[in-house]
Write a protein that binds this DNA or RNA. Structure first.
Lengths: 209, 209
DNA sequence: TAGATTGTTAATCGATTAACAATC
DNA sequence: TAGATTGTTAATCGATTAACAATC
């Protein structure tokens, strides 16, 4: 693998993984770039280019071995390892995430949940304890957790992020509607539902005129 | 407004809206491109370029009027109108979306919820009736709904999308892990939690080595 | 006026796409 | 072998960034 994979390519790799995995599940042994492109509505040339950044190669006249590619990407994306995470802000969204079955398949494990509501603290959700936010840094550090999920209101998110990072988190999944300030080694994926909704809204708005 | 606003710019407009809105709420009357850039970690030149696509302009030596820009973007993004939506697949995620307060502020209203579980059908969630999926096309049409939200498993998503579109939906918010095939006039926003998680996962994986 | 900040033009950068040699 | 499909080189396209004239 060359080191400089373009970010747009990196963002598409999970998509390819999904298709290869599905093909394997359906007993399809090989898939060429044209077939894959048809499924994902992308030019085949983009797929070949993207996959050429990887160590694993296709075979001329045949295409890509679905099982090989699926397991290579699984490894590349780190999906087969157990990954420990904590979540801060136990609301409806948190409940949905914790019970999302796809995540368990990808090795995501919740080690602790944090909240500042005394009524929630001490209880459990899906077998995971709810703990006061004051303990974030300490507990993250003790558990060696690398992934933090923020589902708090916007006002609390930056402070929460700071504490997660202080505890050793290097990847943050941010559901709060705010742009977080983080050091360079920390990777943030923003999941901004309100902003995505604004895009939908704009499309409907445009269509009215 | 020129017609050809680049897609990356369109995707950033909701971000600008959010900052202008927050500034207004904090009593800040003007903001220049450098300040805005600092808040969003973007070059000021990108912000000026993006905003130059809009009809509303900034003022030299002053910057942008926050109230003007917020309300212009609110209008442009269609956030002030009531927008009717239906949702298909009443699980945990659906519950989280329906109770997400941000959406109500943006004018999102749920008119109907669809599911195929007999235990759910007939009951209500947040005051909205749960109806059999067989009635999607008919009900969407009767209610003139333009936005459909899909929170079903992957297997059902394409069929659901087809029915939503048949009923008149032109904007789909897809939470199912599948690439939907839709006609050109239909706009799809994919919210792929598993794929975004894979990005986080990859970052943690990389850091291990 | 001098200085600051815009909007825009031009330069750069990077990603996508087309074309094709390699090869199984 | 002939044909199909890859991986890669080169061309194109589009977005970002730098530079700066306009102007308040």
């Amino acid at each position: 693998m060359k080191s400089g994979i373009p970010i747009p390519t990196l963002n598409r790799l999970p998509l390819y993984y999904r298709e290869f995995r599905r093909a394997v599940d359906n007993g399809i042994e090989t898939m060429n770039s044209k077939e894959l492109g048809a499924r994902l509505f992308m030019p085949d040339t983009q797929i070949r280019k993207d996959l050429s950044y990887l160590d694993e190669q296709g075979r001329q006249r045949v295409g890509y071995d679905t099982r090989t590619m699926a397991s290579y990407l699984e490894d590349f994306l780190g999906l087969m390892d157990e990954k420990q995470a904590v979540l801060v802000g136990v609301g409806n969204l948190a409940r949905a995430l914790i019970s999302y079955p796809e995540f368990r398949r990808y090795g995501l494990q919740f080690r602790a949940l944090f909240d500042n509501d005394p009524d929630k603290i001490g209880s459990e959700l899906a077998g995971v304890k709810i703990v006061p936010v004051e303990r974030i840094e300490n507990l993250v550090q003790r558990l060696s957790v690398r992934i933090g999920i923020i589902t708090t209101p916007a006002e609390a998110a930056q402070m929460v992020a700071d504490q997660l990072i202080a505890g050793g988190v290097i990847a943050i999944w941010n559901f709060a509607p705010i742009t977080l300030k983080v050091p360079a080694h920390v990777y943030v994926v923003n999941e901004n539902l309100a902003i995505d909704f604004a895009k939908l809204s704009h499309h409907v708005q445009k269509a009215k005129v």
